[in-house]
Design a protein around this nucleic acid. Structure first.
Lengths: 225, 225
DNA sequence: CTCGTTTTGTTCTCCCGTTCACAAACTCCT
DNA sequence: AGGAGTTTGTGAACGGGAGAACAAAACGAG
């Protein structure tokens, strides 16, 4: 109930309220859509316009935004710049996030070169690889170092987020080392289920799983056609 | 009720029943876990063991498997090989799936080289890129061709699945061309919302969105600490 | 100032997915 | 053959998210 929270002296914009996971997962999409609108010179947009740009239902969009606070104006819409900043702040991408990437195969290189990271506050402070043959190579302006430097680098830069782009067999070891030296968020591209302590967040991206899901639906289409 | 379906003459294994999306998304994980168990020489496993290997709750695992049919034995567990085959068949990875990849940057190359595709029935029949400079390069044993060859290749090989690994600005055009020549499933790595006809399935993988979600939680940890 | 129009913020309802808990079914041992 | 122990398959309760629908708020015209 709206009243209950009002009585406590907190507004609905209080950012200590926790936001549903499903909403958190969509905020970066809204952020991207707003950035695009901003670049096109749009100063104001309605929930309907933004919803179309983000590929979601407008009611869902409004509900999502309402978890952050009341940043719109009824009868008018949202100020693109203002809303963009509010979402960025809520997600945390107004900060600087030092990141280490372990495993410099094609995927690791793709990640190191990805401009979408830098533009959102993620700064690749180190590229690490166990293979000495890759040592001293420079990728995306960052020198490839020995994996054993992990602890020192994490300590020096205050790294909280690690990216694993190694083969599956190495991934658990890398994760263990990361956890041991204080990393609390891991983005895992290796096709394996990592086991880590509860307080560590792991998100996984598995390229082949996505294709398999498509294959399932494709097979269904073929069967019913 | 178990009896009700028996009365209709259909067994619970009837594969024309449609499987919940959430379950479909987990089947590839089970498949991978079973493959690992099989390689380790495990002949039989309980739902609990498999659940641990897949990183899910055992009750959820059993319910997921029950949508496929009754492939377990009470008091014993599941035959690893048999269950693995049943899941593979249900997903469709016992078939051969020709795939085209468009955009041969680092990411495209990583995809082309990814062994997890080939081992699950996905065969990269063509690598396409708009940049003439990349033409005739050979990546993962496949020659890079002009994007304009798309229609012919899709026709020749009966390609149903396309992968987009281009920069964002090119992605919508690529998607349109894919749809026009009959591709009905698209895996999109470009950070943009694609618009396609309803009957076309699109799954997106956005590297920076995953990092942003981690950043959000990381920020929360820091705030409450 | 008042009325009509637009668009947000929120409530309400429905549906999907998760989890618990247990009966049914199978094995093994005596 | 029978009973003890194990594990599956599923009914039922629960929680969270999606979408429709509406009241509240802002703006503009007259």
């Amino acid at each position: 109930m709206e009243k209950a929270t009002a009585v406590t002296g907190r507004t609905s914009a209080d950012s200590s309220r926790d936001i549903p996971e499903a909403t958190v997962a969509r905020l970066p999409i809204y952020l991207r859509a707003l950035t695009t609108l901003s670049e096109q010179g749009t100063g104001t947009c309605s929930s309907e316009e933004l919803a179309v740009a983000a590929g979601v239902n407008s009611a869902k969009l409004r509900k999502d935004l309402s978890y952050l606070g009341s940043y719109g104006t009824r009868g008018v819409g949202y100020d693109v710049e203002y809303l963009r900043y509010q979402i960025a702040r809520e997600i945390g991408v107004t900060q600087d996030w030092p990141v280490v990437i372990v495993g410099i195969g094609n995927l690791g290189q793709a990640l190191a070169n990805y401009s979408g990271f830098r533009s959102r506050g993620f700064r690749v402070v180190a590229l690490l690889d166990a293979d000495p043959a890759r040592r001293d190579e420079v990728v995306a302006g960052v020198e490839v170092q020995a994996f054993d430097n992990l602890e020192q680098i994490v300590g020096d830069h205050g790294v909280a987020i690690g990216v694993i782009a190694t083969p599956a067999v190495a991934a658990q070891d890398v994760a263990d080392r990361m956890v041991a030296c204080g990393i609390t968020s891991i983005l895992n591209f290796a096709p394996i289920v990592l086991s880590v302590p509860d307080q560590v967040d792991v998100r996984k991206v598995d390229l082949s799983i996505e294709l398999q899901i498509l294959a399932y639906h494709e097979q269904r289409k073929a069967a019913t056609a």
